[in-house]
Design a protein around this nucleic acid. Structure first.
Lengths: 193, 193
DNA sequence: GAATGACCAAATTGTATTTTTAGTCAATCC
DNA sequence: GGATTGACTAAAAATACAATTTGGTCATTC
């Protein structure tokens, strides 16, 4: 390792720039400038812009997964685990500059890399949920079923009730959200007997 | 009424053109040509392009609502009514040229009028669902709750399991879809005792 | 008096020109 | 002598501007 770790410098600068300006508006010149490094140096560590971006994205995804996993407690009921994990994920996504910027970039100019990145994030969340569901089924905590489809449904339902609902309504209180998700996941709408 | 009903001619031509080319690519000259009518004639019946479009859209929405309502039978369980109504709505949306074209237009070029139109369609579907839910609550067929939120959740869940799922997976069989929707709406995932 | 299409301002599209950007590589540095 | 660099290039993107298209009008026609 050199006196100053140039690779780390580049990564740090790139993380900053991608979070602040998004994929497209981040230029390699700018990253080099922020990192106090010649532009050529970047290319000794990363093939190209996309690979550099992938590295940054992977870091963010790793943290997202980490936070979600921290919400899983084997002794807690399935529903509580799902709810808290999803709540954490949505909150993290709404706080993390990179995700915010990429969403905005996708909306505003439809950058393919932003689209691909957010799709990757969704895939990871789905994988996470699917595993949680599978394990809960194995433990007999919930009924058997197609874990992939169920994960997909639960995620979309949660996104709908939080992000999408808030787009045209005053945001729901957390307890109300939890109650609704609870209804869908544990009992449905059949009238109490 | 004149020998030929020019208003009807215009409406018919407009319906054809909007369905075939979408909102933006439909020109008033073209509508006039198809309708065998001078362009000025259109403006004796409709204020402007948007109003003409609104008339066509309203017609399509009226038919959509009509079909959905035909799926509601008071003696059938709530869940069956919801499932068949939504199935009909999604199918109609996937068949009707106008809706298809508007969705494509929104994806490809983001025409504001296409966005507004599809939002209007969703609002109507939500209203329809909300009413069905309210009435079922009043009848005691399902548990009490916030009908608007529940309608929103059910619609998004259904769209997710049909349209969105099919975008990245082989489409679900109808029975499988019905079973999953059934699970969410009537019992949830709690393990059988 | 209903219907029309030539007409116009505004918006859209096409195009030529300039600027910016990702990526390279010969020269430089330590 | 391998790591580092920034001037350089081809390609892409932004800009400026000309040409065309389009929604809407209204004097004229039927």
């Amino acid at each position: 390792m050199a006196v100053v770790d140039r690779r780390e410098q580049v990564l740090h600068a790139a993380a900053q720039s991608f979070s602040l300006f998004g994929y497209k508006a981040t230029t390699m010149d700018q990253v080099a400038k922020i990192a106090n490094v010649g532009k050529g140096t970047i290319y000794t560590f990363f093939e190209n812009k996309e690979e550099l971006f992938d590295e940054i994205l992977l870091g963010a995804i790793r943290e997202l997964r980490h936070r979600a996993e921290a919400e899983i407690h084997a002794e807690r009921p399935f529903f509580e685990n799902v709810y808290h994990a999803l709540d954490t994920i949505v909150e993290f996504r709404e706080e993390h500059e990179l995700f915010l910027k990429l969403s905005q970039e996708l909306r505003d100019i439809g950058t393919p890399q932003a689209k691909a990145a957010l799709f990757k994030v969704e895939s990871v969340v789905l994988q996470f949920l699917e595993r949680l569901i599978r394990e809960s089924m194995d433990k007999g905590a919930i009924r058997e079923g197609n874990a992939e489809v169920i994960a997909f449904g639960i995620l979309k339902l949660f996104i709908a009730m939080t992000v999408e609902w808030d787009m045209h309504h005053p945001p729901m209180r957390k307890e109300e959200l939890k109650e609704h998700i609870f209804t869908f996941l544990t009992q449905g709408f059949t009238a109490a007997p």
